[in-house]
């Protein structure tokens, strides 16, 4: 038995230790790794009717992946332009949502972390309470705000700023706002956490030596907050690239999110292998993108957990 396991059992007793270990294993292996592996397996199989599963036609193939790139066999186009466009648009939009969230949340997190007093708790509460409302209701609430005859348009037209209502939905502004809003907390809290532990004297020392506020943030606060920033950005990026409800409800009629394609494959087309392949591509691309960006900004994997 490896040493850490022995220590673990010594500390917790054999009974409790086995139970805890069993639960953790069940969680990671049973609920995460195995289903994902079976998805991976699906993605390399043809879509067969149930009687033929396990039969001679059930062989490994990369057809599902080829489909994303080249489209249906004998199709009118050389490439699967529609799906690919949705794919990279989703990634770009997720990057955009992440950056937008970062720009919005960093000052809030900084303010919350560096200000003392009771009003901060009220502030934090006001950020948290909206999350008691379910995701779908929140998305529909945004529709009410951004709709053609919504609150915002009524106000803008009423004030004479616009002559005719602006279509926030078709222009994806509602979608970005919805996605951004959905993950604000996931961005604020990791950044808040690190900045809270930053010694105020460091900020004052920098200021004392003549640094402007931008310089203080660039040289002192942001480098210190980097682990929090990366962990916030990673979560927001992954979750917005994988979001389904917000694009479904707030997306314009012409703009699909890649997750919606995956959903269609699973649900409307009953083509699980195709859906699995799309999901795998999305997951792997997102992970690679995150790793590349982390490398670029010299962030360690260990920092993300902070």
């Amino acid at each position: 038995m490896p040493r850490f396991l022995r220590e673990f059992f010594n500390r917790n007793g054999v009974g409790m230790g086995s139970l805890m270990l069993g639960l953790v294993l069940f969680w990671t292996v049973g609920l995460i790794i195995l289903p994902q592996l079976s998805m991976l397996d699906f993605s390399f199989r043809p879509n067969l009717p149930p009687p033929e599963i396990g039969g001679p036609k059930d062989v490994y193939t990369v057809e599902n992946y080829k489909y994303l790139i080249f489209g249906p066999e004998g199709g009118s186009q050389d490439y699967n332009a529609v799906d690919l466009r949705v794919f990279y648009r989703t990634l770009i939009a997720a990057v955009f949502v992440t950056l937008f969230n970062l720009v919005l949340c960093y000052p809030i997190a900084y303010y919350l972390a560096q200000t003392k007093g009771n009003h901060i708790r009220i502030f934090a509460l006001m950020l948290i309470i909206p999350y008691w409302i379910n995701e779908i209701l929140r998305a529909f609430a945004l529709r009410i705000i951004f709709g053609e005859t919504g609150v915002l348009n009524n106000a803008l037209v009423g004030l004479g700023i616009f002559d005719t209502p602006f279509d926030f939905i078709r222009n994806d502004i509602a979608l970005y706002a919805g996605l951004g809003y959905a993950y604000i907390l996931l961005m604020i809290f990791p950044i808040y956490n690190v900045i809270e532990s930053l010694d105020r004297n460091q900020i004052e020392a920098a200021r004392d030596m003549g640094a402007s506020w931008t310089k203080i943030h660039r040289r002192v606060v942001i480098p210190y907050a980097k682990p929090g920033i990366s962990s916030g950005c990673t979560m927001v990026f992954m979750l917005s690239a994988g979001a389904l409800a917000a694009p479904q409800i707030l997306g314009g009629p012409s703009s699909l999110w890649f997750t919606q394609l995956i959903y269609q494959q699973f649900n409307d087309n009953s083509d699980w292998p195709q859906g699995a392949a799309y999901a795998v591509v999305l997951l792997v691309t997102c992970i690679l993108l995150v790793l590349a960006v982390m490398r670029l900004f010299k962030v360690n994997m260990g920092d993300i957990g902070k």
Binding site: D199, N201, Q202, E204, A205, A206, R207, D208, M209, G210, A211, S212, R219, V220, P223, Y224
Partner: peptide, 21 residues
């Protein structure tokens, strides 16, 4: 006149060196 504009330099009780520099 703000601290960044005064001809003073302050050494803090806890020094406040920048840990990442």
């Amino acid at each position: 006149i703000g601290p960044n504009k005064r001809p003073t330099a302050l050494i803090f009780q806890n020094l406040a060196l920048f840990p990442l520099m």
